[in-house]
């Protein structure tokens, strides 16, 4: 299944679309560091141009902003409006972003984390080639309590091997 996605860096015009996603509890509870209840100033801060190593993009499907995805030395992060699951969108976007990241930066590995009750996101990472390596407690900002978080990593060597392996 091939979905056709487009990306560009986030900008302040994306506020309405992004804040709508950040106002959906079923999405926010799975995010690493977004507040609940939704906070407009926080969302504004997150769609400001990303400075530092890495990038944050808006994800478009048929010219509609359906989510955001970012990659930095701290890890891969993404969120999507509900209703788009089951089409391989998150996996496709993650793969595009990882390919761009490894091409652009000299990183030896990328990391990502998923809360323990988010197997769908863990499956996205697994399909990209990530492997789980440890599980910790971290305080979830949205949930307000320490929550188990699974940490995954993907080395450049693994990524390259998966791209060249005979099918």
């Amino acid at each position: 299944m091939m979905v056709s996605l487009a990306y560009r860096p986030l900008n302040p015009n994306d506020f309405d679309a992004v804040h709508a996603i950040a106002s959906d509890w079923s999405v926010v509870r799975q995010l690493g560091n977004w507040p609940w209840p939704p906070n407009e100033a926080f969302t504004m801060g997150r769609i400001a141009p990303y400075d530092g190593e890495g990038f944050v993009w808006a994800v478009f499907l048929a010219e509609k902003l359906i989510g955001t995805i970012g990659l930095s030395p701290k890890g891969l992060g993404y969120m999507y409006a509900s209703g788009w699951s089951g089409r391989g969108i998150a996996t496709k976007a993650a793969m595009d972003v990882i390919a761009f990241g490894f091409k652009t930066y000299d990183w030896t590995e990328v990391r990502a984390s998923t809360w323990i009750d988010n197997p769908a996101s863990a499956a996205v990472l697994r399909k990209c080639g990530f492997t789980h390596w440890q599980t910790h407690y971290e305080a979830s900002l949205a949930r307000g309590i320490p929550t188990l978080i699974q940490q995954h990593r993907l080395s450049r060597a693994t990524w390259d091997r998966l791209r060249t392996a005979p099918q």
Binding site: W133, Q134, T135, H136, Y137, P146, L148
Partner: peptide, 14 residues
């Protein structure tokens, strides 16, 4: 708080 798991470099294992 609860059980988790961590990677130990010296053991080479989670």
């Amino acid at each position: 708080l609860g059980d988790a798991e961590a990677f130990s470099v010296s053991r080479g294992a989670t």
